[in-house]
Write a protein that binds this DNA or RNA. Structure first.
Length: 306
DNA sequence: AAGTTTAGCAACCGCAAAACG
DNA sequence: CCGTTTTGCGGTTGCTAAACT
């Protein structure tokens, strides 16, 4: 209610994150795990508000994030999901484990909206389109149906993956218990390594203190678009010997790192076979009832877009 | 080549929901 | 059960680089 915004404090830094700040944050989270954001600024000495720290972590520093170069496949999924869910980016992002909601939102606003509009203009007449969501009650209904369906899927797959699914209570990442760390956070070292490597590369020129550098260095350039299969799920197996080599002392891959896991993204693949969902989302002929649902909200134009 | 416009993206802000005591 | 605190989400802004004139 009457609580003042966390960022109103004087002495709180705003604007792009520097690589130094990134490293401090990553080191801290590696040690303590994500969560309890309130205490992060005080404990790290970062002149950032807790919100800013959390955002930076979830959108850029968190391991397993893929940036840039959305594949056709991902585009399709986003379009379908947006038609189904509306602008519920977090829910959409939960189906694209390597993408952040912010990234998806930006991509939608800058690319897909235009693309669909163009297409819509091309086709000109007729009905609504994917970029024009239907009534809210319909969307809610669709969402509810989806959630129910997913709950069912979860229940069915519970046996197989019960040991791994503790980290996530529900399918969407709308709500999540705090301080729930799963077993596979080793990939954090990857991001840190990339961060440091690129920082080293860039620093001789100038400590280009802008978040571009940080963001790019930590993510995009070193993770070109190899498709879904790679970065997130192969981190553990490939487990970057080179990454840990280049990593600083205090951010080296340690057993504790396993504490660390993908905290802010639901681990979809652990509960519902991801390919199943994809199939359902993308395969128009998948099943009759599903098709009906999808057809309720998805314009054919968007389906035939690609 | 310089100035202007546009596009893309990182980050901020405010609100709402969840968690906590 | 209620008030407070913390976290998460979606909309929006502002900066930078690319494209255009």
């Amino acid at each position: 209610m009457g609580r003042p915004p966390c960022c109103d404090k004087v002495g709180v830094k705003k604007g792009p994150w520097t690589p130094e700040e990134d490293i401090i944050l990553v080191s801290y989270i590696q040690e303590h795990g994500p969560g309890n954001w309130r205490s992060v600024p005080t404990n790290t000495g970062l002149l950032r508000c807790s919100k800013s720290c959390r955002l930076r972590w979830t959108n850029y520093l968190r391991p397993g994030i893929k940036r840039g170069n959305f594949t056709d496949h991902e585009e399709k999924m986003i379009i379908h999901l947006q038609a189904l869910l509306g602008n519920r980016w977090a829910a959409i992002a939960s189906y694209l484990p390597q993408r952040t909601d912010n990234d998806i939102k930006n991509y939608w606003n800058t690319h897909l909206k235009k693309k669909l509009k163009k297409l819509q203009d091309g086709q000109n007449h007729g009905g609504f389109s994917a970029s024009q969501p239907k009534g809210q009650w319909e969307r809610r209904l669709q969402t509810d149906i989806r959630l129910a369906k997913q709950a069912l899927c979860e229940a069915l797959s519970l046996d197989k993956s019960s040991s791994l699914t503790d980290s996530k209570p529900s399918t969407t990442n709308v709500t999540r218990p705090h301080h729930v760390f799963g077993p596979t956070y080793a990939s954090s070292a990857e991001n840190i390594a990339r961060l440091l490597e690129n920082w080293k590369k860039n620093s001789p020129k100038q400590a280009q203190t802008n978040s571009d550098t940080a963001a790019n260095s930590s993510c995009s350039e070193t993770t070109p678009d190899h498709g879904f299969e790679h970065s997130l799920f192969s981190f553990n197996s490939s487990n970057s010997s080179d990454a840990s080599q280049s990593v600083d002392e205090n951010v080296k891959l340690t057993p504790e790192t396993s504490l660390f896991h993908e905290e802010s993204k639901p681990n979809i693949e652990n509960q519902v076979p991801f390919s199943l969902l994809e199939k359902w989302l993308l395969d128009e002929g998948c099943s009759q009832s599903h098709e009906d649902l999808i057809n309720m909200s998805i314009d054919d134009s968007s389906v035939g877009l690609f």
